Simulated scan of single mutants.
Amino acid sequence: MKIILEQDYARLDRFLTERFPEIPRSQWDLWIRSGKVAVKGQAVTKSGTRLRAGDEVETEVPDITPPGLHLLPEDLDLPTLYEDDRIWILDKPAGVVVHPGPGHPTGTVANALLGRLQKEALALQETQAAEDDDEEAAPLWPGLVHRLDRFTTGCLVTAKDAQAQASIQAQFKARTVDKRYLALVRNSRRLPELGSFLIDEPIGRHRLERLKMCITTSGRPAQTRVKVLARVAGLALVECELLTGRTHQIRVHLGHLGAPILGDPLYGGPTRWQDEEKRAILCEHPMLHAWKLSLDHPGSGERVAVMAPLPPPFQTLLERLGIEI
């Protein structure tokens, strides 16, 4: 990857950290000292190398190796929607991270799953590149077959053995897992009054803002079926059916329609709103909820269907708006 600087920077590591904020500065320091970053065609080994506007920086984005060898079982009180000896489907609360990463070494769903198993039944797998970080890609952690963003609530399925994991992952790839989400969005003229419609736009990583995804012709195919359930106070409640599983798919697709999710500023969603009586509505995180999920049981083959109740902040907001589901 080659980058032409548009301004001066006092330090090379600072520039790289700002450009790729998901990579810790300490990781860039190791990457630079290993000679894996070039400036103006020459490898450099000093993190404090000064940069000038017009300089060309060439590097590959380093992988962040997960702390797998240190992943320990944890007894976390996470609500269960369905559980047997093969799978565990939980109702993920807002703020809970699915797998460990920078800033979240513990307290994740992966830790909780190992805590439930109480044994080392599943082998950790190698980290994938960020571009493959999709629900349909191979799992990064034991028992995980798909993900929810940190502040997305609701249905999340995990597997308790390797065979169950492979079975469910195959169902995701075959698109036989039914996933329905509820989202409260800013109303848009591009949302139909009645019925449902399909958003079919490819999604890839944003070229400049590495924490974001975007609509791009170079992205991977992505399809979301959207149905408008209610409209009030300049907002709309929509049901989204994921036909593919790209990173931030619903957030990107709805934002692309001019209907960003309330509480999602990363994709243009407002964090403040007013109800019909002009009373303030504050949202600390996106109003996006994994509402329903169904799949074939990896053992019996029978269909397992669950529904996660709306979390209190989402339910209270809908009641204020007079919306029933």
Rank of each mutant, 00 (worst) to 15 (best):
K2Q: 15
K2I: 12
I4G: 02
Q7E: 13
Y9W: 15
R11K: 15
R14K: 15
F15E: 01
L16W: 09
T17W: 04
F20D: 04
F20E: 07
I23H: 02
I23D: 08
S34N: 10
G35I: 06
V44T: 11
A53H: 06
G54F: 07
G54Y: 07
E58W: 06
E60T: 14
P62D: 13
P62I: 14
D63A: 07
T65F: 05
P66I: 04
L69D: 12
L72P: 05
P73K: 06
E74H: 14
E74C: 09
L76E: 07
L76R: 06
L76N: 11
D77S: 15
D77E: 14
L78P: 04
T80N: 01
T80G: 03
L81M: 09
D85Q: 12
W88H: 04
L90N: 01
P93R: 09
V96D: 06
P100V: 10
G101L: 10
P102L: 07
G103N: 13
G107H: 10
T108R: 03
T108L: 10
V109A: 09
L114N: 08
L114M: 14
R116F: 04
L117W: 13
L117Y: 15
Q118A: 10
Q118V: 03
L122P: 05
L122D: 03
T127K: 12
Q128G: 11
A130F: 10
A130I: 12
A130C: 01
E136S: 11
E136F: 11
P139D: 07
W141Y: 14
P142L: 11
V145K: 04
L148N: 13
D149N: 00
D149P: 02
R150G: 04
T152R: 06
G154W: 00
V157C: 15
D161Y: 03
I168T: 07
Q169H: 15
Q171G: 02
A174I: 05
Y181F: 13
R186C: 14
S188Y: 05
R189P: 05
E193N: 15
E193S: 14
E193M: 09
L194K: 14
G195V: 09
S196K: 05
F197D: 04
L198T: 11
I199P: 00
E201P: 02
I203T: 08
G204K: 02
R205Q: 09
L208A: 09
R210Y: 03
K212W: 03
K212F: 00
K212C: 11
C214D: 07
T217G: 13
T217Y: 00
R220A: 06
T224E: 02
V228Y: 02
A233T: 08
L235H: 01
L235R: 00
A236D: 01
L237V: 06
L237K: 01
C240V: 03
T244S: 05
R246D: 03
V252A: 02
V252W: 07
H253T: 01
G258D: 03
A259F: 00
P260V: 06
P260L: 05
L262H: 05
G263E: 01
D264T: 06
L266T: 14
R272N: 13
W273E: 07
D275L: 08
I281R: 02
I281P: 01
C283Q: 06
C283L: 15
E284N: 12
W291H: 06
K292H: 14
K292V: 06
S294A: 10
D296Y: 07
R303D: 05
R303M: 09
M307H: 12
A308I: 05
A308P: 12
P313H: 14
L317V: 04
L318W: 03
L318K: 01
E319D: 15
L321K: 03
